[in-house]
């Protein structure tokens, strides 16, 4: 079974993990409805690394919710009005692209946990939440 760079983080956070296309994926951390609500109300992050191409050097995060820009602007000087930008996010060269729910971040895999923690730290003032695939599907629906 393939593991995202955040696998251990998810485990520690008490995520319910499931198998999807040969990967362990976090379905939810507590309650999908609450997670989706917290994202709609403020901001949340989700690990989508399992959606990557084979042999990708990147982890993928989705950051979504009305306070997305406020959180990202604490970690990057990239112009978030662009649809796609490449540059430093929490001091790590990353690719930031617009997503229907917010922004998709592609972070070099070995920096993934570091950037994830930075996002959570920067988002503290907005009560940032982590959300699993179930919540992300609700948000997309």
């Amino acid at each position: 079974m393939k593991r995202s760079a955040l696998h251990r983080w998810h485990e520690k956070a008490g995520a319910t993990l499931a198998e999807e296309n040969g990967w362990y994926v976090p379905l939810r951390y507590s309650n999908a409805e609450q997670e989706a609500g917290a994202v709609r109300g403020s901001v949340g992050i989700c690990d989508l690394s399992h959606l990557h191409e084979p042999l990708s050097p990147y982890a993928r995060f989705l950051i979504a919710g009305p306070n997305t820009r406020a959180v990202l602007s604490k970690l990057t000087s990239l112009n978030l009005d662009l649809t796609k930008a490449y540059g430093s996010v929490a001091h790590v060269r990353s690719l930031v692209t617009r997503h229907e729910l917010g922004f998709l971040l592609m972070i070099p895999r070995d920096y993934a946990e570091s950037v994830w923690e930075s996002l959570l730290h920067a988002g503290e003032e907005f009560h940032i939440t982590v959300f699993g695939l179930e919540a992300s599907r609700r948000l997309e629906a």
Binding site: R3, A5, R8, K74, L75, A90, H91, V92, P108, R109, D110, Y111, E113, S114, V115, S118, H121, A122
Partner: peptide, 12 residues
């Protein structure tokens, strides 16, 4: 902020 980047190998 203390956001010093850390690189971890997959077996960290």
């Amino acid at each position: 902020a203390r956001h010093h980047p850390i690189r971890r190998t997959p077996m960290h």
